[in-house]
Nucleic acid binder design. Structure first.
Lengths: 132, 132
DNA sequence: ACTGTTTTTACCCATTTTGTAAAGAGGAAA
DNA sequence: TTTCCTCTTTACAAAATGGGTAAAAACAGT
């Protein structure tokens, strides 16, 4: 029922970057130390965030990582889903066909509505609100 | 990020019982067949629900399982937590001490509020609403 | 006693999660 | 061009979780 540690690490890394001057880059190891994340573990997470298009990376001396968009245009949802995949509170909320009872299941709706609320909140929460 | 299959099975079993005449008992195997749950797996779940005080069980011939309270007094939350333990969207929502940043983490609040909403919804949803 | 039921126990196996370590690839600067 | 410095990729592994099976044991009614 929890997001993974990886997703939490990703959020913390993004938070670190959001608080930086937008023109600045940070090395992965620098983030790892500041946020107490296992460096080698964070490296893989950074890679995923890069693939998802949430950050820009540049290699070599003076290289590093930075947000690919303004903090106000990056939501918590995007980061979590980039790492953990789509948010689902129950199996049936992603794929209705899985449920034996199809449309007739009254419990289904509870999960759908709860999930919808959760997702909406995460989607409307951007990293801009964390900087201030 | 999902409830476990076990919790889902527990909900379906409770739903089955809620739809029964309150004086009636159902055998575990009967529930298992109706709700397409592996019988031996359901047995363990039923046992947990009994320990949690959500159902009454009686052994022996003509024995079976029934709700220990009116359906209107049993919430979805109770059932889920009886099986999966306390609902937590992130590690830090249960135990603040886990977080390296303590109170200063802005992301913490997002999870706490989301979780609070979710828990409230599940707490106020009872099985009575499923019977009708 | 017998039968039907819950209860408990002991496994098993696949997947996911959380990491570690090291080799590789690619820029920047000297 | 050489040498750092950084991300990237790959391989591995230990531990936890999830989902399930099977069978013996305990118990209650007929």
């Amino acid at each position: 029922m929890q997001i993974t540690r990886q997703a939490d690490y990703a959020l913390r890394a993004m938070l670190y970057l959001a608080r930086l001057d937008p023109t600045q880059r940070a090395a992965t190891n620098q983030i790892a130390e500041a946020q107490k994340i296992p460096p080698s573990f964070l490296a893989k997470i950074i890679s995923q965030l890069s693939i998802a298009g949430l950050i820009h990376t540049s290699r070599g001396a003076r290289g590093g990582v930075s947000l690919s968009r303004p903090a106000g245009e990056i939501s918590v949802l995007e980061v979590v889903e980039a790492i953990d995949g789509p948010i689902a509170l129950n199996e049936c909320t992603l794929d209705k066909d899985v449920c034996v009872f199809g449309e007739k299941c009254p419990i289904h709706d509870v999960w759908c509505e709860s999930q919808s609320d959760l997702v909406n909140r995460l989607r409307t929460t951007t990293f801009a609100s964390f900087v201030a």
